[in-house]
Design a protein around this nucleic acid. Sequence first.
DNA 1: CTTCTTTATCGTATTATTGCAATAAGACAA
DNA 2: TTGTCTTATTGCAATAATACGATAAAGAAG
Lengths: 108, 108
Amino acid sequence: MGLSKTDNFTTEQNELAAFAKALGHPARVAIIEYLSTQANCVCGSIVDAIPLAQATVSQHLKELKNAGLIQGSIEGNSICYCLNPEKWKKFKQMLEPTFTHIEQPVCC
Amino acid sequence: MGLSKTDNFTTEQNELAAFAKALGHPARVAIIEYLSTQANCVCGSIVDAIPLAQATVSQHLKELKNAGLIQGSIEGNSICYCLNPEKWKKFKQMLEPTFTHIEQPVCC
DNA sequence: CTTCTTTATCGTATTATTGCAATAAGACAA
DNA sequence: TTGTCTTATTGCAATAATACGATAAAGAAG
């Protein structure tokens, strides 16, 4: 139905899915990579770095913000978008069990 | 347009996005968690563990398989789905720079 | 106040995703 | 062969996501 049945799953499962979904687009991956390597966090610089229209980049930033992966703060006339360390720690923590599991594959 | 402009991004960015996108649904998170904790990998057991119709679960399994996060092997009359360790290692490796970066937040 | 800069939102077209019933396809058993 | 069990595929309806031009909103600069 195009509508995810989130009620059938745990809060944690939904949160992990939300993190992953937010990262599930190359433009948003590029934004995160940019923020991980650049000291510059001004919105306009991100827009310049991503090969999409300003409106589209703004939309992607909004989704990353909604998922909590980035946070925005007003910096004079512009806006500074930065990674949200706590959410990323949680994201990492939720992936850890699977990352650990694949070290000793037990299956077929 | 509903069509991702993947051409504008690197192969790596697209691959990371594909991994993340595959994990971007609670049902698929639940499947991965199941495979990370259960020794049982038979398709039917997964279907039983996920509160969705068989056809829907089969579709989610297909997406995880397309992304490479799981692999299926014929096991007698049924099919065994397991995590693909190599792809998960790559996934982890691609997230590492950001996981590392958030240890020393340098931004606003 | 006016203008410019910066970012967000709206409207819209297009395509993708989700979900399930129904059905198909394949292997195995009798 | 016939039936059963297991998994995949098809077809469809409903909803979500992607992209961008146009426009709005809010400050800064003059």
